[in-house]
């Protein structure tokens, strides 16, 4: 049956062609290449999360700036990023991978008592930070931060405070405020929300059992503040933020409330100095692109670039602070 044979031959040829293409792709995506050719950014959060955004903005900046040929983002969600950290720690010596990290991951490391820490990575750079704000709905009885602190100190259980995940940056800021304001940290009634959207809605909701005070990054609240539905009582930042008429914690006499939400990039441990320098250079070029500047502005980040050794020292110091804080919180 010649016709069957023809069909069979064509089929095998087709499969062979597919397989060759696929293997080429696999070989290309595999390790063992220069970071300039193919770079992997690990976002230790699900698609749509804050770290995912950093990774994807970075990917975009590297692409449009022709800094790296192919950049792929891999999402490894879970447990405040520590699952991604565990995977990164296993990629020893791979100079073609970087992972997004930030304040929340240090909290996650401290909280899970994980054996793997930032010591098991090669710090590359801190990129940007954004600032936490304390907001209340427009009809809230708290006109000023002092109104809130008075009511809070009188009966902490009656003033539920909302924010992101338990042990996350919002929770830690709540703990710092409690310490500074003389409220016993263990009496703080903190309600964790799945995201900024849920928190905002909980603030706006008139239903019973929702929170009356919210802590989150300014970006989550910005538009509702502009429209007058939310009021910012205070910002956790060294200086006042453009466009918000609210005092800083230092102005309020609570300078010890100072946690900022920074994001950075780390590479696996055990990479060569040359690889480390190359990654650092890639990041320097990335943050210089117009695409990155737009991303910073759009997401209301504030640039806070530090590299290499400086970043490493910063990480050690920050981890120590956060460990102490979380211990206080009983987390």
């Amino acid at each position: 049956m010649p016709r069957r044979r023809v069909v069979a031959t064509l089929g095998i040829l087709l499969v062979a062609a597919l397989a060759v293409t696929a293997f080429t792709d696999a070989a290309r995506s595999g390790e063992g290449q220069a970071a300039r050719a193919s770079l992997t950014l690990i976002a230790p959060a699900a698609a749509g999360g804050g770290w995912d955004l950093v990774a994807r903005e970075g990917q975009q900046a590297m692409r449009t700036g022709n800094i790296v040929n192919t950049v792929q983002v891999v999402n490894i969600p879970g447990a405040a990023g520590t699952i991604g950290l565990n995977q990164l720690a296993g990629l020893t010596g791979q100079g073609t991978t970087m992972m997004v990290t930030g304040t929340v991951m240090l909290g996650g490391i401290s909280q899970s008592g994980s054996a793997i820490s930032m010591q098991d990575t090669t710090p590359i750079a801190r990129l940007a930070e954004d600032f936490e704000v304390i907001a209340v709905p427009a009809e809230s009885p708290f006109r000023t931060f002092d109104d809130f602190v008075q009511a809070w100190a009188a009966n902490p259980a009656a003033v539920p405070i909302g924010g992101g995940s338990a042990g996350g940056i919002d929770h830690m800021v709540a703990a710092q405020m409690a310490q500074a304001a003389g409220v016993p940290v263990e009496t703080v009634q903190y309600t964790a929300h799945a995201g900024g959207g849920e928190l905002t809605l909980s603030l706006l909701s008139t239903a019973a059992g929702t929170v009356g005070v919210g802590i989150s990054g300014y970006n989550d609240f910005a538009d509702l503040v502009d429209s007058g539905q939310l009021r910012v009582l205070a910002v956790v930042a060294p200086e006042r933020l453009a466009g918000i008429d609210a005092p800083t914690m230092t102005e309020l006499g609570l300078p010890e409330v100072d946690l900022v939400n920074w994001r950075g990039l780390v590479a696996p441990q055990g990479i060569t100095d040359a690889q480390r320098t190359e990654l650092e250079q890639i990041v320097r070029e990335m943050v210089a692109t117009e695409s990155w500047s737009e991303a910073v502005e759009r997401n209301r980040w504030v640039r806070s670039e530090i590299y290499g050794e400086d970043f490493e020292e910063f990480l050690v110091e920050e981890q120590g602070r956060i460990d102490a804080l979380l211990e206080e919180l009983g987390l």
């Binding site: 397989a19 696929a22 792709d25 995506s29």
Partner: peptide
């Protein structure tokens, strides 16, 4: 052959075109 074809198509479309990372295995060592 059918399995190889399907696996290859998935690799090409999702790793090659869309950038989802799939394990390369020993092939990646080259």
């Amino acid at each position: 052959l059918a399995g190889l074809a399907l696996a290859s198509v998935i690799q090409i479309v999702f790793s090659g075109l869309l950038g989802i990372s799939l394990p390369a295995g020993f092939v990646g060592g080259f």
